[in-house]
Simulated scan of single mutants.
Amino acid sequence: MSPEEFKEARRALGLTQSELGAVLDTAPQTIRKWEMSDVRSTARGVNPVAARAMRWFLGGFRPPEWPRRPVG
């Protein structure tokens, strides 16, 4: 999964970087770096385990840590 695909998946799930970080037990700064273009010097490749988890989330899996949104 490319950084742009990862970012698009997060947005499709309606999560902020902080919320996704809480779900993945990862700092929001790390999420930000995973989403950066590879040409930036501070960019990191997307963690393969996180990419796999994103595919599960897109498929409908929701762990207990998933953020709850108020209804209304």
Rank of each mutant, 00 (worst) to 15 (best):
K33C: 05
D25E: 15
G21R: 10
R52N: 01
N47M: 01
W34D: 01
A43C: 03
P70S: 00
L13K: 07
P67W: 15
L20G: 00
V71F: 04
P63F: 07
S37T: 09
F6I: 10
V23Q: 04
T42M: 04
G60R: 00
G59W: 00
R44H: 02
V71S: 05
P67V: 03
A22N: 14
P64G: 14
W56L: 13
P64D: 11
S37R: 11
R32D: 08
Q17R: 14
W56T: 13
P64Q: 09
F57N: 05
V23P: 03
R62H: 13
V49W: 05
R11F: 07
R52K: 08
V71R: 03
R11N: 12
E65W: 06
V39I: 15
E8H: 05
E19T: 09
L24K: 02
G60C: 05
P70L: 11
M54W: 09
E19I: 15
R68T: 08
A12K: 13
P67Y: 12
K33Q: 07
R52W: 05
E19G: 11
P67G: 10
P28S: 12
L15C: 07
E19R: 09
M36F: 08
P67C: 11
P64V: 01
F57H: 02
S41K: 10
R44P: 03
E5W: 03
V71H: 01
F61P: 02
G45I: 02
F6Q: 13
F57P: 00
G21H: 06
L15K: 01
T16S: 15
A53E: 08
L20A: 01
N47L: 01
E35R: 00
G45H: 10
R52H: 02
A50T: 04
R32W: 00
T26R: 15
G14K: 12
G72W: 02
E8N: 09
F6G: 03
G72Q: 04
A27H: 15
A22T: 09
R44E: 00
M36H: 05
L58D: 00
A27E: 12
L58S: 06
E4C: 07
R69D: 13
R68S: 11
R69F: 06
T26I: 12
W34S: 03
V46C: 09
D25G: 11
I31K: 00
T42R: 12
E19M: 13
R10D: 10
F57Y: 08
G60Q: 05
P70D: 07
R40K: 11
F61Q: 15
S41N: 14
R40V: 13
R62A: 02
R44M: 01
M1V: 14
P64S: 12
E35C: 10
S41V: 11
D38Y: 14
S41H: 07
P3Q: 02
P63E: 15
A43E: 07
R55H: 09
V71W: 01
A53D: 12
E8R: 06
R69H: 06
R40W: 11
R11S: 12
N47V: 05
N47A: 08
Q29H: 03
R55S: 04
G72K: 04
L24S: 14
P48F: 01
R32F: 02
V39P: 09
G21L: 15
S41F: 08
A22E: 14
T30M: 06
L15D: 05
T42D: 11
A51S: 10
A12G: 11
R11K: 14
K33S: 08
S37K: 10
E5R: 07
S37M: 14
I31A: 06
Q29C: 02
V23D: 01
R62Q: 05
A12W: 12
A9T: 13
